[in-house]
């Protein structure tokens, strides 16, 4: 009696975790040279290390990195956190932000198709843009601009992804505000708060990866005296 417990009798399968695709769209143009690119690289290492400490995030977050500077490059395709190797980025070139955003939207849709094909459940993907300037490959009102606005605003409206924009230093916040989906105000990184911002991102992704059905996630506010960001009006 009592020896044949159900736990020892039934076959319990390995968990099939839902995945959360996250794309970092990073400005590596010439203006990011010096401390900024060094802090960005350090931030990527912090983000990776923090996520690797979180058991669920390791199983659920798939991270990709797109850079825009000397062209637009998918420097890390979607990779699980345990295998993710943060890239060492260097600065140079212009700011082809429009093409980079469209590439992020494309890879997110491609990833969701892959999830569906293999039958993996998934959370709404995140696109996280960081820039210190303004786009050089589109102007407000031109064809690419309209394409980007439609992709970002339409994508958010259709719940295809969540888009966050973060400005650094001399970033054109007016343009970022127009690119950002309505209601998602872009944030300006406070000086010397790179590490805090990546810690926030890590915490937020951990929360998302541990969210349950129907749950509205309350992310820690990045704005405030202790936060890493400010909203520029």
């Amino acid at each position: 009696m009592g020896l044949d417990k159900l736990e020892d009798i039934v076959g319990i399968p390995y968990p099939q975790h839902p995945h959360c695709a996250t794309v970092l769209v990073l400005d590596t143009s010439a203006s990011m040279s010096g401390n900024k690119i060094a802090e960005l690289n350090e931030g990527l290492r912090i983000l990776t290390d923090e996520l690797k400490e979180d058991d669920l995030a390791v199983k659920r977050i798939d991270l990709a990195v797109i850079t825009f500077g000397k062209g637009v490059e998918l420097v890390r395709p979607f990779t699980g956190i345990s295998a993710f190797d943060p890239p060492e980025l260097s600065a140079g070139g212009y700011t082809p932000m429009g093409a980079a955003i469209l590439e992020a939207v494309r890879v997110v849709e491609e990833r969701k198709t892959e999830y569906r094909t293999i039958g993996t459940d998934y959370y709404r993907p995140w696109i996280f843009l960081i820039t210190d300037g303004q786009p050089t490959d589109m102007r407000k009102g031109d064809e690419k601009w309209e394409q980007v606005i439609e992709a970002v605003h339409g994508g958010e409206k259709d719940h295809k992804f969540l888009f966050w924009a973060l400005g650094v230093d001399q970033a054109n916040m007016t343009l970022l505000r127009e690119i950002s989906p309505p209601g998602r105000t872009p944030l300006m990184l406070k000086e010397a708060k790179w590490a805090d911002m990546f810690l926030w991102l890590s915490k937020s992704l951990s929360q998302i990866s541990d969210s349950r059905i129907g749950e509205q996630i309350s992310l820690e506010s990045p704005v405030g005296p202790e936060g890493w960001g400010v909203i520029q009006l």
Binding site: P18, D121, Y122, Y123, R124, H159, R212, I213, G214, E215
Partner: peptide, 9 residues
């Protein structure tokens, strides 16, 4: 439902 954290009630 498309996403893992969404459901009908």
């Amino acid at each position: 439902s498309e996403y893992a954290n969404e459901t009908a009630a």
